[in-house]
Design a protein around this nucleic acid. Structure first.
Length: 268
DNA sequence: TGTGCCCTGGTA
DNA sequence: TACCAGGGCACA
């Protein structure tokens, strides 16, 4: 269930496991993964040493010595499992990287929506992303300019990766709650003060978000696994529960095919 | 700009 | 057994 903080953590784990090692083999185990990563494309990665692992929005990018790039997007469910090549493969393993030191890196994804692609040397993954929200590249003036061009409701605009890189459905709702803004308001109708509040709220909610991996938050030996860790959330998934600020029942609506949660009283 | 689809496990 | 899901893309 990765949002930006979880992808950042996953990237760091991947970097630790892969940097300086060679990818001995790449295997795909599900038809949908094989469509994105056919054996001919995977061959660009086989035998190559890993130079670096970086993150851009919610994609992870592995730079290889021959100039090729592996790009991984977890979509809704993806995660890494690290083990040894001799271990029993994890449930829902979709793509596997075997390393030259005997490490096995498995992409696990029950819904098989994750996408792994390999770009040959000279090809670069497309980058249609806006600024990273936790860096200086994310600036108020640029944010204001982007919102001023959009006449649609602010909530779906925040999910546009060209506006803010890596903001997902949960934290778009959380940021709007934090900034006391109605998710249905047209993006270009927000006052300068509201845009500034929203701009401040985005890093706040992302920093508050748990970075722990799904499997670590839901250890099988700690009873029934939870679908979500919602302890840091103020509105998302809290339909009918009292608003943490004013006590009014949280509402749920659908915008652009996705759930939006908000407080009808203090988000105006 | 909104809708449907890719997938399948978990939950009501 | 039906329904739901946090992403992103193609398409109308």
């Amino acid at each position: 269930m990765p949002e930006l903080p979880e992808v950042e953590r996953a990237t760091r784990q991947l970097r630790k496991a892969l940097t300086g090692r060679a990818v001995a083999a790449v295997e795909t185990f599900h038809p949908s993964q094989r469509r994105a990563l056919p054996p001919a494309a995977a061959a660009h990665a086989a035998g190559q040493r890993v130079i670096d692992v970086t993150r851009r929005a919610k994609t992870q990018r592995v730079a290889l010595a021959n100039g090729a790039t592996i790009e991984i997007h977890f979509r809704m469910n993806g995660d890494w499992e690290f083990g040894r090549t001799s271990d029993e493969p994890p449930r829902f393993e979709r793509v596997r990287f075997d390393l030259d030191d005997g490490t096995r890196v498995s992409l696990v994804d029950s819904r098989a929506l994750s996408v792994v692609r390999v770009f040959a040397a000279g090809e670069m993954p497309p980058d249609r992303y806006g600024p990273e929200p936790l860096t200086k590249a994310f600036d108020l003036a640029g944010f204001r300019t982007k919102l001023a061009r959009r006449t649609t409701p602010i909530k779906p605009v925040l999910l546009d990766q060209a506006v803010v890189a890596g903001l997902g459905n949960i934290y778009a709702a959380e940021a709007l709650w934090e900034a006391k803004i109605d998710p249905r308001a047209a993006a270009n109708s927000l006052s300068p003060a509201r845009v500034a509040r929203l701009f401040e709220a985005i890093p706040v909610v992302l920093k508050r978000a748990p970075a722990a991996r799904y499997y670590e938050r839901n250890r099988p030996d700690e009873g029934k696994p939870k679908q979500h860790d919602d302890s840091t959330r103020r509105v998302y998934g809290r339909e009918g529960k009292p608003c943490a600020r004013c006590g009014t029942a949280i509402k749920r609506i659908t915008q652009a095919g996705r759930s939006t949660y908000y407080c009808g009283r203090c988000q105006r």
